[in-house]
Design a protein around this nucleic acid. Structure first.
Length: 569
DNA sequence: GCCGTTTTCGGCCCGACTGTTTTCAGTCG
């Protein structure tokens, strides 16, 4: 079952949508949207909070707090129920059609009684929209196309790696255009969010024409809008890509503007309005006389606002404007990878190739952690594992130190594959849940805590076992797990594979509060996967992590001491 | 509905683009 925070967040969002459809309440709707986001992302379980504590959540006031309490005690929110009665359930789905917002949705309902996507399609086919104010032939055509796009499942979010590949390909192409002074990706991709809704590309050039022309001709894509400052396309796979072109002198302000997040920008803007300033994509200006104060670099603009440059991963309005910023962990801080596979189990590359590729990354240590024997499909045996250890020792000629480890299976009771004697011969171990995902929360929690208590388990791998956009996380009391991990000296993995990104930023922030240590690992099954670390680093940065909190940035001696001290418990 | 160095009322980011409009509303990010 989902956390109460997410359930209530979704209800508040529905409330916001319904409000925006009734019109004239735009600010109220926005307030509920903000509250919804704050509640979903709040670190504490809202079902454990009282009225006062609920009101402490930013953007949650008396009214929303009361609604949350009402939901927690009765299972529903009376005012929401009443609003639902006024609007057909399918009307909200109309807003998912690209180009169709709340105003048009409600017009379709009040004028023609349309309350679902099916009814809208039928009405268009019957010509009923002709003559309806605001619905000219072009609009109707766009709506039909929007329905097609939506029904093809082409409006959702994509993995960050998918978006990154598209962005890097387009940028490489547009770099060739004459007159392009700078070009980079911005938006949620630059902030390293786990999924990406659309790709924002920013370029600096005096004349935007050639860039826009070239971009509009991107193969296998359709143009959504095209103008001198902004052009949007949709790729065949349904990913929207926006290109903005600004003069080089506005680069910093524009990069800030298009990097967002929206919440960060709004918070920043609200503050500076009070100082008599205003910020747009063209620069920071004094409000009274429009004097340009800063624009060329992000550093300039933030500095003029009395702020340090804020790393994109922190720009989520989670307190980054309020005080000291952490020295975020960087990819160059990583001294090794502690979770990797070879073709002895389900990897595709032999040991020597993996080691060679890892050495090229400049690591000072590298752990081989093939699957353990209780995962039958991997056909692991004691003998195979011991033979691999000999191979690892033979290959270990430095300067990169090889660690022989394994990825253990946390069985349904919290036990792992081998006895203490066998386990004690590994240099380091990862333990992960690979089956029985749907245990009740209490059982799952105890299961993982028991693994943490095993003196030979050093890292819990992909804790929630979720697959991004595919499989939900397991149900467990993660705060209890983090408490146990911190107490036993067990690190929690940040699995860098873009399919997993497990744990994610929200959980990292919660884990941090318990004093947990982390390990950022590629979980590589091929040499190419070693380079996926960038996504794990992105997630760690979004979780405000510093180098000191990440065990694979530590020197080898300190890492070995971390393993050793747990075995003494 | 929420918030506060403009603090219990009055403002809430703001610009680009499209379509329909005859000066602007709606949508989007």
């Amino acid at each position: 079952m989902a956390r109460p925070n997410e359930v209530v967040g979704a209800l508040l969002l529905e409330f916001a949508d319904l409000l925006s459809m009734t019109g004239g309440q735009a600010f109220k709707a926005r307030a509920y949207e903000k509250a919804a986001k704050a509640v979903s992302g709040h670190h504490a379980d809202i079902s454990t909070l009282d009225l006062k504590q609920l009101e402490q959540i930013p953007n949650v006031g008396k009214s929303t707090a009361a609604k949350i309490l009402e939901y927690l005690s009765t299972g529903k929110i009376e005012t929401l129920e009443k609003m639902r009665l006024k609007m057909p359930a399918g009307l909200r789905a109309l807003m998912n059609i690209p180009g169709l917002g709340p105003q048009k949705a409600v017009a379709l309902h009040s004028e023609l009684g349309i309350g679902s996507v099916e009814e809208l399609t039928a009405a268009i086919e019957a010509g009923k929209l002709e003559g309806l104010r605001g619905f000219g032939p072009k609009t109707v055509e766009n709506i039909l196309h929007g329905i097609e796009v939506m029904q093809a499942g082409n409006t959702g979010r994509v993995l960050i790696s998918t978006a990154m590949a598209v962005a890097e390909e387009i940028i490489a192409d547009l770099k060739q255009v004459k007159g392009t002074e700078k070009i980079t990706y911005a938006g949620s991709l630059r902030r390293m969010k786990e999924t990406i809704g659309d790709v924002d590309i920013l370029a600096a050039a005096n004349d935007s024409g050639p860039l826009m022309e070239r971009f509009a001709k991107t193969p296998l894509s359709e143009v959504i809008v095209k103008g001198p400052a902004k052009t949007s396309i949709r790729t065949a796979r349904g990913l929207q890509v926006d290109l903005r072109v600004v003069p080089a002198k506005s680069w910093g302000a524009a990069l800030m503007y298009f990097t967002g997040s929206k919440e960060h920008s709004v918070s920043l803007r609200t503050r500076l309005v009070r100082q008599g300033l205003k910020l747009s994509e063209y620069g920071l200006f004094r409000a009274e006389d429009n004097e340009l104060l800063a624009a060329e670099t992000e550093e300039d603009v933030y500095a003029r606002l009395g702020l340090p440059w804020i790393p994109p991963a922190l720009r989520e309005d989670r307190g980054e404007l309020d005080g000291d910023l952490p020295m975020l962990v960087q990819e160059s801080d990583l001294k090794g990878d502690l979770h990797t596979h070879t073709n002895l189990t389900d990897g595709v590359a032999p040991l020597a190739r993996m080691v060679e590729a890892a050495a090229k990354r400049g690591y000072s240590y590298y752990a081989i952690t093939d699957h353990a024997k209780n995962l039958p499909m991997q056909r692991m045996t004691d003998e195979k594992m011991l033979r691999q250890r000999e191979e690892v020792r033979a290959l270990d000629a430095g300067p990169m130190t090889l660690l022989h480890g394994t990825e253990l299976n946390i069985d349904p009771d919290g036990e792992v594959d081998w006895d203490h004697d066998f386990l004690s011969k590994f240099d380091i171990t990862v333990a992960s849940v690979h089956s029985h995902f749907s245990q009740p929360s209490k059982v799952m929690t105890q299961r993982i805590i028991r693994a943490c208590e095993n003196p030979y388990v050093n890292i819990i791998g992909h804790l929630t076992t979720r697959k991004v956009l595919k499989r939900p996380p397991v149900d467990a009391d993660f705060d209890a797990v983090f408490e146990a991990a911190a107490a036993t000296g067990t690190a929690i993995e940040i699995n860098a594979h873009p399919d997993r990104l497990d744990i994610n930023d929200d959980l990292i922030l919660r884990a941090k509060r318990h004093g947990v240590k982390f390990s950022i690992d590629s979980d590589a099954h091929s040499t190419g996967h070693l380079n996926l670390m960038r996504y794990g680093i992105g997630m760690a940065q979004r979780g405000w992590l510093t180098k000191a909190e990440v065990i694979n940035t530590w020197p080898l001696a300190k890492l070995r001491a971390f393993v050793k001290s747990k075995r003494k418990i």
